Amino acid sequence: MGRWEPNARGRLATAALELYSERGYEQTTVAEIAKRAGLTERTFFNHYADKREVLFATAGEFQDRFVGAVAGALKSVAPIDALAAGLDAIAEMLADQRDFVRTRQAVIMSNPELQERDLIKLASTSSALADTLRRHGVPEPDASLAAETGVALFKVGFHRWIAADEERELSLLMREALDALKAVTAGS
């Protein structure tokens, strides 16, 4: 190993994503990721539990931002508008990461195990959103329905945002999805 360089975690994530894209997720080993990053396997495991976690390392932050923004907004706005505030918080979190996220999502979509993990993370976010809504007085089944709707709005906007020919901002695409939902439910 050469001299110490900062941002080991970021270097590992970049190396992993490059290798997953080049060779495939299943064919890439932790040793190869560490070597590409110029680090040791031990350093890899100091930052990530396994090679899947490289792809899902920000899931906790994603959930915390989404739920936190919704909780904060519920003090002064209707639940649907609070969900919009949560979507805006997520859009802000991802704003400068479009290329990384596009590549990451391509890796996830090429592997059923990773797709399942992605869905589990989104289900966890939906559950946390529903809990937050209930704590703020939204009854069931409304809280669960609203939470699932918030996650669905995210998914629709997100998948449009990562499309190869899409250049518009994520916040705009999620707002468009919300406006379309409002139009459909209003009978327009």
Rank of each mutant, 00 (worst) to 15 (best):
Q63E: 15
D64E: 11
D64K: 06
R65G: 14
R65A: 01
R65H: 06
F66W: 03
F66C: 04
F66A: 08
F66E: 01
V67L: 00
V67K: 02
G68H: 06
G68M: 01
G68P: 05
G68S: 10
G68K: 04
A69T: 03
A69M: 08
A69L: 06
A69Q: 03
A69W: 10
V70D: 06
V70L: 14
V70Q: 05
V70R: 03
V70H: 10
V70G: 04
A71S: 09
A71F: 06
A73E: 07
A73M: 04
L74Y: 12
L74A: 09
L74N: 01
L74S: 02
K75I: 01
S76E: 07
S76D: 01
S76K: 13
A78G: 00
A78V: 12
P79L: 02
I80V: 11
I80H: 05
I80L: 08
D81I: 05
D81P: 12
D81L: 11
D81N: 14
A82G: 05
A82C: 12
L83N: 09
L83A: 05
L83P: 07
L83G: 04
A84T: 09
A84C: 10
A85P: 08
A85F: 07
G86L: 01
G86H: 11
G86M: 13
L87V: 07
L87W: 10
L87Q: 07
L87F: 08
L87P: 00
D88P: 01
D88V: 02
A89H: 09
A89E: 03
A89Q: 13
I90T: 12
A91K: 02
A91H: 12
A91T: 11
A91G: 11
A91S: 14
A91Q: 05
E92G: 07
M93F: 14
L94I: 02
A95G: 04
A95N: 14
A95D: 09
D96P: 01
Q97H: 12
Q97W: 06
Q97F: 09
R98T: 04
R98W: 12
R98M: 07
R98S: 02
R98H: 03
D99Y: 04
D99N: 02
F100W: 07
F100C: 02
F100P: 00
F100N: 00
V101R: 02
V101A: 10
V101T: 15
V101N: 04
V101L: 11
V101D: 04
R102I: 10
R102W: 02
T103G: 03
T103L: 15
T103V: 10
T103F: 10
R104K: 12
R104D: 00
Q105Y: 13
A106I: 01
A106D: 11
V107W: 11
I108T: 02
I108L: 05
I108P: 00
I108F: 04
M109I: 04
S110P: 08
S110T: 13
S110Q: 15
N111I: 13
N111M: 09
P112S: 08
P112W: 11
P112M: 13
E113N: 14
E113K: 15
E113T: 15
L114I: 08
Q115E: 04
Q115V: 12
E116Y: 07
E116P: 01
E116T: 13
D118V: 01
D118N: 12
D118I: 00
D118E: 10
L119C: 13
L119N: 06
L119A: 09
L119K: 05
L119R: 06
L119P: 00
L119H: 07
I120L: 08
I120T: 03
I120Q: 06
I120G: 05
K121Q: 14
K121P: 00
A123D: 12
A123G: 14
